[in-house]
Design a protein around this nucleic acid. Structure first.
Length: 469
DNA sequence: CTATGGCACGGATT
DNA sequence: AATCCGTGCCATAG
C-alpha cells in the first residue's frame, strides 16, 4: 500500500518538482505570460471570475475573506498579515509605463498617433487657453518625441513668458511616454530619472553620469566616466546598464541601447513588484500587510466542463484530452505550491527584517538563504529560486530586489555612509574602521575601503568636508 | 610614514 | 561547481 502510494506520488512529484521549480523562479509578470499562454493553448484550463472583498473591494483569490478587513476588525495581533493578492493598483508613480510594460520590440508610435495619444492624457490638465500652445508643441515634436524647436521661440510666438511654456512642457514630460517633448535626449533621460526616483531605488551614479557625461555615455566610454567621476568601474557599469535598460533618450522610440539580453536586472523597473509591503491602511501606526502578488485576476482552475466532456469523449481524442487535463491540473497545483512557498518565505522575512522595513537600511539583519531554507525545511535552491529576480515594493513605495533582504553588509555600508555624511573632517579608512567597530560593526580597514568603493565615495584625501551631490 | 587601491587567497554562500 | 566576500599583503603616491 505504502509502496504503491509512494510510487505513484513519486511519479507525479518528479514532474511536479520540475515545474514547481521553474514556476518558482518566475517573476509575477513572467508568470502572467506563462498563464496566459497556457490558458490559450490548453482547453482544460479556465479562469474563474474574480471576487472582491465587499468592504474594501480588494480582489480576492482562493480565499474567502479579505485578510486586511477581517484582520482590521478582529482586534489585531502584532503579527504581520501575509496573503495572496491580485491587486493592480500599485502606486507606480505619476504615470506607469504602460507601453513599456509589454516588451513589444517592434512597437513604435506613428507620428499622428503619438500626438493624439499624448494629448488624450494631458488634456484634462490643460487650461483651455493653453490648448493652442499644447497643439503647437505637438506639431513641433520630431519622430523621436523630442521638441525640435527651442522653448524660447514658442514663448516668443505666443507672447508668453518662457516659464509658462516650460510649465506646459512639464505636463507633457510626465505623460506617457515619459520625457516626451523634452528639448534633448539628456533632458528626457533626466525627466525619466526623476519620475522613477519617486518610486524606485536607483543607482546613485545614474544622475551624475547623465548630467555631466552625456557625451561619454553615448559613446559608452565607461572607463573614462569612471575616471572622471572618480568612481568604481563596476558601479559605473552598473549605472550605465541601468540607464540602457530602463531609460530612453528618445521617448517615442521604445528601445535604445545595446544588448537587451535581460538577465541581471530584468527590466525590473517597469515590471510590477512581486510582493507589496505596506502598513494597514497606509497608516504607519498599524501593523504590516504583505501581499504576494498573483498577476492575474480570478482563480485558475481545471474546467469542470472539460472533465465531464472527457468522460464521453471518443477514444482517439481521449488520450490527447487526458494529457491536457493532466497538464492543467499539474499547472494549477504547481502554482499553488509556488504561492505557498512565496507566502511562507515572506512571512519569515518580514518577521526577521521587520526593523529594516520599518526603520531603514541600517537595521538590515544579515540573513542567509541557507538559514531560511533550514527554518522552512526546504532545499536551499528553493529559496534561491524564490528570491532571485523578484522585487518588493516597500512601504515608502520604493521597489527593491527581494535579494536585498539577504544583503550581508548593506547595514554596515549605510552606517558608513551616515558617518561620512556627518563627518566634519575627512576620516581615513582606518579611522572609519574604528568608528564602525564602536558602532558594533567589526570590519577590517581594507573592507572599509571596499565599501566606500561600492558606494562610490571618494577616498579621504579627495573628500572635502562639503558633500557634492 | 600614512593612506589607499590591486591582487589573490580561503572560506562562506548560492 | 561557481561565485561572492572579507581580508591580508604589497606596491605606489604623497
Amino acid at each position: 500500500m505504502l509502496q504503491t502510494h509512494n510510487h505513484v506520488t513519486r511519479h507525479t512529484t518528479t514532474a511536479h518538482l520540475a515545474q514547481t521549480m521553474t514556476l518558482l523562479s518566475l517573476t509575477s509578470e513572467e508568470l502572467r505570460q506563462r498563464i496566459e499562454n497556457e490558458l490559450s493553448t490548453n482547453p482544460a484550463l479556465e479562469m474563474l471570475d474574480e471576487r472582491r472583498c465587499p468592504h474594501c473591494s480588494r480582489k480576492l483569490n482562493n480565499i474567502e475573506h479579505c485578510p486586511i478587513c477581517s484582520q482590521a476588525k478582529s482586534d489585531q495581533s502584532d503579527e504581520p498579515v501575509v496573503f495572496l493578492s491580485s491587486r493592480e493598483d500599485f502606486n507606480l508613480g505619476a504615470s506607469s509605463f504602460r507601453e513599456n510594460d509589454l516588451p513589444d520590440d517592434n512597437f513604435s508610435y506613428q507620428e499622428e498617433d503619438l500626438g493624439v495619444y499624448v494629448l488624450g492624457q494631458i488634456a484634462p490638465d490643460l487650461k483651455p487657453e493653453d490648448r493652442k500652445i499644447a497643439a503647437n508643441i505637438l506639431s513641433n515634436l520630431d519622430e523621436d518625441g523630442l521638441l525640435d524647436t527651442a522653448v524660447i521661440e514658442i514663448a516668443r510666438y505666443f507672447h508668453v513668458p518662457i516659464s509658462h511654456i516650460e510649465q506646459i512642457q512639464k505636463i507633457f514630460q510626465n505623460a506617457d511616454p515619459i520625457g516626451v517633448a523634452s528639448g534633448s535626449p539628456q533632458e528626457a533621460l533626466l525627466v525619466q530619472l526623476d519620475v522613477l526616483n519617486e518610486t524606485h531605488a536607483l543607482p546613485d551614479l545614474a544622475r551624475p553620469i547623465i548630467e555631466q557625461h552625456m557625451d561619454l555615455l553615448s559613446r559608452r566610454q565607461d572607463s573614462e566616466i569612471a575616471r572622471q567621476l572618480k568612481s568604481g568601474l563596476k558601479k559605473v557599469r552598473q549605472a550605465i546598464h541601468f540607464i540602457g535598460e530602463n531609460l530612453n533618450p528618445y521617448p517615442a522610440r521604445t528601445h535604445w541601447g545595446y544588448n537587451r539580453s535581460n538577465r541581471t536586472w530584468r527590466g525590473q523597473i517597469f515590471s510590477r513588484p512581486d510582493v507589496v509591503i505596506n502598513y494597514l491602511n497606509d497608516d504607519p501606526g498599524e501593523q504590516l500587510v504583505v501581499e504576494v502578488i498573483m498577476p492575474m485576476r480570478g482563480t485558475l482552475q481545471v474546467s469542470p466542463e472539460f472533465r465531464n466532456a472527457l468522460r464521453q469523449a471518443q477514444a482517439e481524442k481521449k488520450e490527447l484530452w487526458k494529457q491536457d487535463l493532466e497538464n492543467a491540473s499539474l499547472l494549477v497545483k504547481c502554482i499553488q505550491q509556488r504561492n505557498h512557498t512565496m507566502l511562507r518565505l515572506m512571512q519569515r522575512m518580514v518577521v526577521l527584517q521587520k526593523e529594516y522595513i520599518l526603520s531603514g537600511e541600517r537595521y538590515l539583519q544579515p540573513v542567509t538563504r541557507a538559514r531560511i531554507a533550514t527554518e522552512l525545511e526546504v532545499h536551499e535552491s528553493t529559496i534561491s529560486r524564490a528570491v532571485s529576480g523578484k522585487t518588493v515594493q516597500m512601504p515608502n513605495r520604493k521597489i527593491v530586489p527581494l535579494s536585498i533582504f539577504f544583503d550581508r553588509n548593506l547595514n554596515v555600508r549605510t552606517v558608513l555612509k551616515e558617518v561620512i555624511e556627518a563627518e566634519t573632517k575627512p576620516y581615513s579608512d582606518s579611522d572609519l574602521a574604528e568608528i564602525l567597530a564602536k558602532e558594533g560593526f567589526k570590519v577590517a580597514r581594507r573592507t572599509v575601503a571596499k565599501y566606500r568603493a561600492m558606494e562610490g565615495i571618494l577616498p579621504a584625501y579627495l573628500r572635502g568636508t562639503t558633500r557634492t551631490t
